[in-house]
Design a protein around this nucleic acid. Structure first.
Lengths: 252, 252
DNA sequence: TCGGTTAATTTGTCTATACATAATAGGCGA
DNA sequence: TCGCCTATTATGTATAGACAAATTAACCGA
């Protein structure tokens, strides 16, 4: 078997790489419950014989399943179907401009306040850095089809993003601008429910003390905090949704 | 170079596989901004020469980066540093029992209501199935250190989980029990903010019309809905947090 | 100049082989 | 019987070579 590819005619009807075929097949058996959690997966050399391919191909499929958490592999012992994991979900918190445009709505934003200042104690706390240096504080209101969509309160660390000092944020809002300008390596999200205070109520055009969804995000580049932002959405009009397939996007 | 492994003595001080070394190295260059988004990554044969290894090893590193979304690969064109992605975050919505125990608090739950019934139109809507069959409707209150923590309203599709009919949920709450009993393949989450109604306020021991964080989850096995659940947390006492490294857990 | 054909490049997949590593099972001696 | 050594097994990593597929670049004729 010195050929590069499969010899079967089925290749013509299924242009799927061999390792993916195997991967899906095994995944289906796990998902269907045919192989229950804890049970043993055939060894590589067995699958190699079953699927009529080399061990490396089988290994690629099994490694992917292991990385996705569907199976657990131990040397000498073998591979085993993993227990169902804790319910992880991938939340896609998009850039606001993209989010609104994706809904087919007209997007507009306005800068409410803009202040460059020496970092206050509160600022340092929010950014989780030692005080010192300067920050840019911004408040922005985003509109979808001319309706208030979300209020954004942001702090930018000018030590990391000095270019922001000159930026007027005319074409792109601060969040979008930052994504384009600064590479980030780490982010943290906190999601909370809270009541609208007077300012938020006015800005969003909702009654005072109605429910709001607040998303706070801190973004780092290495150890340095780039920005802190708080997004306040009307709770009844906005919701975060997400789908999850265990094993991740194995079948894209 | 017909040997299986590296020949350098550095192997002794760095027990890191070759492909991971390369992967991390490239990742560092991307994260640091040394290679800006859009710029070209050296071709496989170049890296192969640079790192003094085979193309397969380089390929493994690059493929992993591509799968993680850090680079984009196109045949004939080459590999390019990807633009910063939309802000995805991995939300770890744990099993409630595990969540409370992880905080070092005592866990207790009580079944408030339990009703087995023919599926109503509303039930079918929540479960997103065509009406027919029977469901088990449950309301549960979970306590952390004897303080009300969350209210759970659940529908279980008895067509998929007939065993639930006999289950009294004495040792494990329904959510934990389900995780142990039924393999699931798909889940959907919706997160919302809303005001506490009279029932929720009483059950959670909070004022009426205070902010609550509501998480709804639908869980499937293949095409069949297993369960629908709505978790209502006090908004000021609970928050969802998550960290994110672009490229996922490449450096575990 | 335009348009299509051909060649070159780069990634994608696969094979066969080799040695390393971890962990278990079994045997053997004290 | 206990503890140690050894053989076995399964996975982990790595290599060299091969062909496939998809683009892009170059070329060439009308």
């Amino acid at each position: 078997m010195a050929k590069g590819k499969a010899e079967s005619v089925s290749e013509l009807v299924s242009p799927l790489p061999r390792y993916l075929e195997i991967q899906r097949d095994l995944q289906a058996r796990i998902a269907s419950g045919q192989w229950i959690p804890g049970s043993r997966v055939p060894a590589e050399h067995e699958l190699q014989a079953q699927y009529h391919c080399s061990r490396m191909t089988v290994n690629k499929a099994l490694s992917a399943l292991a990385k996705a958490g569907l199976i657990i592999r131990r040397r000498r012992s073998g591979s085993f179907v993993a227990m169902p994991r804790s319910q992880e979900t991938i939340l896609n918190i998009q850039d606001i401009k993209a989010e609104i445009l994706a809904k087919g709505k007209a997007y507009r934003f306005e800068i409410l306040t803009r202040q460059e200042r020496a970092m206050t104690t509160d600022d340092a706390l929010q950014l989780r850095v030692t005080p010192g240096g300067r920050v840019l504080a911004l408040s922005v209101r985003h509109f979808a089809n001319e309706h208030p969509f979300v209020v954004e309160d942001r702090l930018m660390n000018l030590a990391i993003v000095p270019a922001a000092r000159e930026e007027r944020f005319v074409v792109s809002p601060p969040g979008t601008w930052l994504l384009d300008v600064v590479p980030w390596t780490n982010a943290e999200h906190v999601i909370q429910a809270e009541l609208a205070d007077q300012r938020i109520a006015t800005l969003l055009g909702i009654p005072k003390k109605s429910a709001c969804l607040a998303i706070e995000r801190r973004t780092w580049q290495g150890d340095a905090t780039i920005t802190w932002v708080r997004l306040t959405y009307p709770g009844d009009r906005h919701q975060l949704t997400s789908h999850f397939r265990p094993g991740g996007p194995l079948i894209p």
